[in-house]
C-alpha cells in the first residue's frame, strides 16, 4: 500500500528549507497561508514573508516588483484565484518581462471536494500554458512537489506550479532530482502509452496493473512538466505503442491532453483518448465521489486505454 501525503505540506517544507538556503527567496500570501502551507516559511522567515490580504492582483504586481529588484518571489493561493483572478497581471507584470516570479497554487482539480466548483481549478493549466515565457508544472506527488519547488527556485524565470489539496499516493522516490521539462517513464510497456500529471499519474500506474491482468502492457509517463512538454520522451513511447491516453485533473480542453494532442499531431499522429473533466464545472462532494462521477479514476483510464488500443490501426 503506497503512502499518501499532501503536496502542499511538502511545498511548505521546501519553502522553509529555501528560507535558510537562499536569502533571495520571498513568499507572498493572499490570506491562505495556513491552507497553502506557506505558513511554514513564515514561521522561520517572517522578515521575507509578505501578507497582501485578499488581493491577488496586487499580490502579482508586488511579486513582480520584488522580482525586478532581485528577489525570487513565490506567490501562493488557491489555483482558481492564482490564475484566474490575476491572469492579466501575470501576463503583463510577470510573463512579458520574464520576471522571476513563481505562481504556486494549491487546491487544484476536482479533488478539492466539498468547497465546490468555485474553488476547483480545472482551467488553470490551459490559461497559464497559453502565456509566452511561462513554464507549467504539475508534480505527481508530495515528494516531487518538494523537489520541483527546489528546482523552480533555481530556475530564473516565470513558473506556474499546481498542486492538489488532498493527500495523494506517493509514487516517486523521496530525494529524487527534478529536472524541469523532463518527463519520466515510470513503467515500461509496448501496448499503450499512459501520460499523466498530478495525482493522475498514480492512477495511471493502477490502470496499468489492471490492464496487465488482461495481457495489456502499458507504458506510463509522468509528465510533470506540461510546458515545455517533453515531446522526445512522448514520441519515443508512442512510436512504440501507437496509441495514447492522457489523464489529468483538469478540463480536457487546454490542459495536458491538449498539449499531448498538439505534440503528437505534429510528429506521429496517433489515436488519443483524453481522461479529464469534460468541459464542465465541478460540484461539492467527497473527493473520491467526485473523481468517480467525473470520470477520473484508474478504471476510467483503463477503459480509455482499451478503447485507444481497439481503435489503433
Amino acid at each position: 500500500m503506497t503512502e499518501k501525503l499532501a503536496q502542499r505540506n511538502y511545498y511548505g517544507k521546501a519553502l522553509a528549507d529555501l528560507a535558510r538556503e537562499n536569502p533571495r527567496v520571498v513568499v507572498l500570501d493572499a490570506d491562505l497561508a495556513g491552507s497553502t502551507k506557506i505558513s511554514d516559511f513564515q514561521k522561520v522567515c517572517p522578515e521575507r514573508f509578505v501578507e497582501v490580504g485578499i488581493a491577488e492582483q496586487n499580490m502579482i504586481g508586488i511579486a513582480a516588483g520584488l522580482a525586478a529588484s532581485g528577489k525570487i518571489a513565490f506567490a501562493s493561493t488557491f489555483g482558481v484565484f492564482a490564475t484566474g483572478r490575476c491572469w492579466e497581471q501575470i501576463r503583463l507584470a510577470v510573463a512579458y518581462p520574464r520576471l522571476n516570479v513563481k505562481v504556486v497554487a494549491t487546491h487544484c482539480g476536482i479533488s478539492v471536494g466539498e468547497d465546490g466548483a468555485s474553488h476547483q481549478a480545472l482551467e488553470d493549466i490551459a490559461v497559464m500554458r497559453a502565456l509566452p515565457n511561462m513554464t507549467v508544472i504539475s508534480p505527481a506527488d508530495a515528494y516531487e512537489a518538494y523537489a520541483a519547488t527546489k528546482a523552480i527556485a533555481e530556475y530564473d524565470g516565470p513558473v506556474y506550479m499546481r498542486m492538489g489539496r488532498a493527500e495523494f499516493p506517493t509514487i516517486t522516490e523521496e530525494g529524487a532530482p527534478f529536472t524541469i521539462g523532463k518527463a519520466k517513464v515510470i513503467r515500461e510497456g509496448g501496448d499503450v502509452t499512459l501520460v499523466g500529471c498530478g495525482q493522475m499519474v498514480s492512477f495511471c500506474l493502477d490502470a496499468a496493473e489492471e490492464l496487465s491482468k488482461e495481457g495489456i502492457e502499458a507504458e506510463v509517463i509522468n509528465m510533470s512538466t506540461i510546458k515545455p512538454l517533453d515531446t522526445e520522451t512522448l514520441v519515443a513511447s508512442v512510436s512504440k505503442t501507437g496509441c495514447c491516453v492522457t489523464a489529468e485533473e483538469h478540463n480536457i480542453i487546454g490542459g495536458l491532453g491538449s498539449a499531448v494532442a498538439e505534440a503528437l499531431s505534429e510528429s506521429i499522429p496517433a489515436l488519443l483518448e483524453r481522461v479529464g473533466t469534460r468541459d464542465t464545472f465541478g460540484e461539492s462532494g467527497k473527493p473520491a465521489e467526485l473523481m468517480e462521477k467525473y470520470g477520473l479514476t484508474a478504471a476510467h483510464i483503463a477503459e480509455a486505454a482499451r478503447k485507444s488500443i481497439s481503435r489503433r490501426r
Binding site: I60, G61, I62, A64, G65, S69, L92, Y96
Partner: peptide
C-alpha cells in the same frame, strides 16, 4: 524603463514591490 506597463491599474502594485525590496535590502 523599470517595468512593463500599458494595461492600466498595475503600476502602483509593482511600485509597492520595488519599495518593499528596497526596505528589505
Amino acid at each position: 524603463v523599470e517595468m512593463s506597463t500599458g494595461s492600466l491599474g498595475q503600476g502602483l502594485s509593482m511600485s509597492c514591490g520595488i519599495a518593499l525590496a528596497g526596505r528589505m535590502d
